[in-house]
Design a binder for these strands. Structure first.
Lengths: 344, 344
DNA sequence: GCCGGTTACGTCAACGTTGACGTAGGAGGA
DNA sequence: TCCTCCTACGTCAACGTTGACGTAACCGGC
């Protein structure tokens, strides 16, 4: 019943003693290397089983020449965000396939926290890193990469060269969303975005501008609200936009929490069927709302898979030129983005 | 620009040579231990900076007497599930606070996968484990615990003794939900549950039975549907229930994906305002639907915090008797659970 | 001036494992 | 028969770090 807490963990030496062979032979058996006769193999296996021996990977990777820890680090913004956790899951699945485990952390888009976690991962000698870079400078990331750690950035590209990266068609899909709204006759399309330091926000804003231009619409600066980090700020901003003398007839919300905030305000005012809305990033149940929410959907599993593929290729020694993979997002029409401007 | 991929990582020996001290002194400086003069400390720091030295935690924890890896393992069912990822995040926050990183994995409620991941974590000598046990037997878990690894189970209790555990008021809150429905006059309340091998499903079913009994209602066996793993199975089951000669007037869906499946069918049939629905587990946007979905909400951050507290206490040598912490869930009334039975 | 104590270092071995290399014995060929 | 090659082991040291222990220098007190 009680755990034998104080007993020392059995080591190869213990197994070797019991099986009456050398530790090296135990090593060979455990790792399935040739050079051990069938009878000895069986004896060693039995001894290991009897003692409850478990190989010590930390000792092994210390001594090994390839120095692999069979562990990668994943450093995202917030592991409880559905986008991040779906991405983590996709990376994890691919890692498992390679016998690799994942050390996961949330940087909260904070430099010093990201730096701290990076050092922590580095101290554990992870074989590679999949990182969603915090906004602003990326000194700590670059430094880590320059030390030779294979690295892939996801969602946001590096500001330094020589590193693989996987992103979505932020600009193109945003442009498409705006053109969709314009094609229904909307001329006053608002932009609500997350922090401007984030590359994705900038790209989506650029796409918005391109869409307006392509539709022959002029930008109304007062319809642009940025730095809306979190649903609460988005709510306030949406309310202010709707209170304008000439309010927007359509909203393009460039991040999922922003979309949720805007939706709340539209519903609270009973405008959900009168003001058009397209959001960037899908979210669960977007189709069950009234109206269904039209969104730009990123292919998260594919993003994750691609990132994992790249990191494992680099870990396996691939030295081909760095890749910037762009995964296409799709406009999913569910109703809210198909509302025509109401005659006022 | 190019990474100095081939160069060996600097070690304490390199730092020692540059600073003209012994490796032991470097060790003292790096770990902030006394026994080094201020001048030497500065010299060592400078040397470490110059060489880009990073301590090697794997070597350190191998040699150290406490053998800590400053890493814990988290083994949940599916890290992309909102419940699991919120839990992970809560554990991670507490771990960060202790300078500990988290190795995360998804067991997919599959024994052999769980076993495999467990071995993998064990090989890395994690200091402790936070586990959402796969349904059915828990041999691998018990074995791991018997080897002395501190362990806390979350969401589901162990089938073996001597292990801490954190769960929700599954039974009590389910009973409360059923009583709420009964108090509105519902007499035909259906139960839709996840896999019966899961302890939570069993508890919620027991709560359902208790609620019926307490309300003086008799169980109609054909209104009970279990083993609905995933939204698709839940949809089929819901449709079948509604097709009964005497269909239920209220649904108690005992898991979040099941709730979603049932909701879809109700909406598809235009019954969302006529058939009452209470779900176990909250989910994002449940309040934005028409009607808002009444749910039993678990206090996920608190569950995670509690689990983390317990595991770190055990890691720190707490040998007090095992704890089964129960975190209260709350009924959140949003509309769908407050629909009275329609006269038919 | 001598003794006990403290401070600031250094030396050495060991943590659990594996790479490099050594060796005994048998198989096989000339 | 002898030499070569192969197989099945064993021996030894090292991976990067730290615990245990040693030691030289210095300080204060009598």
């Amino acid at each position: 019943m009680d755990h034998a807490g104080e007993r020392r963990e059995p080591t190869m030496r213990d197994v070797a003693a019991l099986a009456k062979v050398s530790t090296k032979t135990v090593s060979r058996v455990i790792n399935g290397l040739p050079g051990a006769g069938p009878e000895v193999v069986e004896r060693v296996r039995a001894a290991a089983r009897t003692l409850g021996y478990r190989p010590n990977l930390t000792a092994s990777s210390l001594r090994r020449s390839d120095r692999r820890s069979a562990t990668i680090g994943v450093l995202f913004e917030d592991l409880s965000n559905p986008f991040d956790s779906a991405l983590l899951r996709a990376v994890e699945d691919r890692a498992r396939h390679n016998g690799v485990l994942v050390l996961a952390g949330s940087s909260e888009d904070d430099h010093s926290l990201q730096r701290e976690l990076l050092l922590s991962l580095s101290a554990r000698r992870v074989d590679g890193l999949v990182v969603m870079a915090a906004g602003g400078h990326q000194d700590a990331l670059q430094q880590e990469r320059d030390r030779g750690t294979p690295m892939v950035l996801v969602d946001r590209p590096p500001t330094f060269g020589g590193t693989d990266c996987v992103t979505t068609t932020n600009r193109e899909s945003s442009r498409e969303a705006v053109l969709q709204l314009a094609s229904l006759g909307h001329r006053d399309i608002a932009f609500l975005g997350d922090r401007r330091t984030l590359w994705t926000s900038q790209e989506r804003y650029t796409g918005y501008l391109e869409g307006l231009a392509q539709a022959g619409l002029t930008l109304r600066e007062e319809l642009v609200r940025t730095d809306l980090h979190g649903a609460d700020l988005a709510e306030t901003a949406t309310a202010m936009l709707l209170d304008l003398a000439k309010p927007p007839t359509a909203l393009f919300t460039a991040q999922n929490l922003v979309t949720v905030g805007s939706m709340r305000v539209l519903r609270a005012r009973g405008l959900q069927h009168r003001v058009a809305l397209i959001g960037f990033d899908d979210f669960p149940l977007a189709d069950m709302l009234e109206p269904g929410i039209t969104v730009v959907r990123q292919d998260v599993p594919r993003l994750g898979r691609k990132a994992a593929e790249l990191i494992f290729a680099r870990i396996d020694g691939d030295t081909s030129p760095p890749v910037h993979a762009v995964v296409p997002a799709a406009l999913v029409r569910r109703g809210s983005g198909e509302i025509a401007p109401s005659a006022d």
